[in-house]
Design a binder for these strands. Structure first.
Lengths: 331, 331
DNA sequence: CTGAAAGCGCTTACAG
DNA sequence: CTGAAAGCGCTTACAG
């Protein structure tokens, strides 16, 4: 079942079939109708491999991921998939496996099977990014900026602005001043900007930040738990804790509960992400809603622009939103 | 940069390069070394489209999904990706869009771009399954059995056995007898077998099930909430509620909290899935841990068997595990 | 508006 | 063990 069968059935050449398939050339309506009829009669569907080989592009977009889970991930994938599909591309997915030995394909995703890839991995993997960039292979970065100022489009969220809203709320509405912050992993850009937002808000309110108020939470439950426990034991628990992420907030809840501290009466807690879990915590978590699905969609749009035109917006910064629940002291 | 460049560099024919690339024919070690050297010097990576066209297979596996989120989804995808990658295939992902108009490709995933697909959608989409089956296109079903006894491999979990463990525990350890069950969506096979397990356990313990104890929860928070609220208002709240799923348990918690009922003192609650959220609920949820990632891996293994040999295990039933926390009354 | 033909970059019998 | 050549199923100038 090939294009030749369709051509025969319709009584035209394969070139004409190809033209109606791709609307890539003039075909009089009458002929078009015959061709379409033949296609649906035969249930014909063009072979991707042959199209790709002949047209010299794969009609596919890659998504390079770390092994992760949760809503965050699903939302982003949903966004990517929807947009890729809408654009008529295929979506290829691979996780980054830095420890695999030498293979025929340097990466599971590359020029050989995709027209471009969206990269969402730790900044440690700069070599991959370089490799792609040097090969002039279209890429878009997620939640991180390009290494060494390379002109690679990047899509992320307004971390700093989100932090500002959070801390402004804690100070303006609730009057807290001793506010702790749990940092994310080293070199993580989300963490960098969230800390910036925290510092800016504090400074603008004339609060001098005590270095003791900043601790390492790594955006994980375990490490955040330890950090808060350390505050508890050393006796300088802040009035409010900005846990850096919702995961961090979970660890914070655990530690405070264990220390017999009530949230928000003894210590207020706020997070970042708005995982679906946030509203089920006791008390429900005040946090920042990140537009994760939109990030996915935007990344695809930017990548397709790069594929088609050679460039796109250097930085897409998607807005975040304050979600007030009860852990900050409201209600 | 093609196989011809490599051949020139190594001073051999392209056939020989192809042979070392695919280990598809005898090549003396000496020649192999020269070819490998040429490949890595040039940084050559074969073009998928050309390979696929020439070899008449795509080296890709498809995963057809509904638009969903959460850990469940991520875990399964992680499993699928790991196994696909390990097997040297590419992974193509698409979500099912039943309402799209007529297009050139009847499905985003099919013979044209994959060697086979894993289908994870509502049973409503039997037509797609039929379509693939009739085209002799390799498929494996996830969490559902084949329509009309078609010999299509299916991978799912031990729902019935999981339910049995849960209800046995409620009865044997805690002595509950009036146990409610929140059904999942109609035609959902997980729900079907979970209900079977519930009924079996009850019967084996000599408990006659009051029809009032069974309500529709749809595995969702909202509907489960309503169902439990209805029990509360009508005054026949069971002693324990098996919410059918963890999502259902969340709705159940909400309803009970709102009705001023304590968990587990007034009403015990158990779920199914062991979402990451389960341990953070107050009280932590007793539930069944489903081997979601393994389901993903197994599906890939079965699909590859079908692709290679034409058949695989008709049914893979992966074991589930009881996770005891406090919502059942333990501790 | 339509067709004949070259070419995309591989794989794979077939010879030797 | 190796090579020359046909062929995979499309797209795309080029003619007409």
């Amino acid at each position: 079942m090939t294009i030749a069968d369709v051509a025969r059935q319709a009584g035209v050449s394969i070139a004409t079939v190809s033209r109606v398939l791709n609307t890539s050339g003039p075909v009089i309506p009458e002929t078009q109708v015959r061709v379409r009829a033949a296609i649906s009669q035969l249930g014909y569907s063009p072979q991707a491999a042959a199209r790709n080989l002949a047209s010299q592009c794969t009609h596919a977009i890659g998504l390079l991921l770390p092994v992760i889970g949760g809503d965050f991930f699903s939302l982003m994938l949903n966004g990517v998939e929807a947009e890729v599909n809408r654009s008529g591309y295929d979506l290829l997915i691979a996780t980054f496996q830095p420890d695999r030995g030498p293979r025929i394909y340097s990466t599971p995703l590359g020029k050989h099977n995709t027209d471009g890839v969206i990269i969402f991995t730790d900044p440690l993997f700069d070599t991959t990014i370089h490799h792609f960039y040097e090969a002039q292979f279209p890429i878009v970065l997620l939640y991180q900026s390009a290494p060494e100022q390379l002109p690679i489009p990047s899509v992320t969220i307004e971390n700093k602005d989100g932090s500002r809203k959070l801390i402004d709320h804690l100070i303006d509405v609730h009057g807290y001043r001793r506010i702790g912050f749990l940092r994310g992993p080293d070199r993580n850009e989300d963490s960098f900007w969230r800390e910036r937002g925290y510092r800016e808000s504090m400074e603008l309110h004339g609060i001098t930040i005590n270095p003791q108020w900043i601790a390492e939470g790594a955006f994980t439950e375990d490490i955040s738990y330890n950090a808060v426990m350390h505050w508890v034991k050393s006796g300088n628990l802040p009035e409010a804790i900005y846990a850096g992420s919702d995961e961090g907030a979970m660890g914070t809840y655990l530690a405070l509960n264990q220390a017999g501290k009530r949230i928000p009466e003894d210590v207020a807690v706020v997070g970042f992400d708005d995982m679906s879990l946030a509203r089920y915590l006791t008390p429900p978590l005040t946090t920042i809603k990140a537009p994760t699905e939109k990030v996915g969609r935007m990344a695809v749009r930017q990548l397709i622009r790069v594929i088609r035109t050679g460039s796109a917006d250097p930085l897409s910064l998607l807005p975040t939103e304050l979600v007030i629940r009860q852990s900050c002291g409201c209600k």
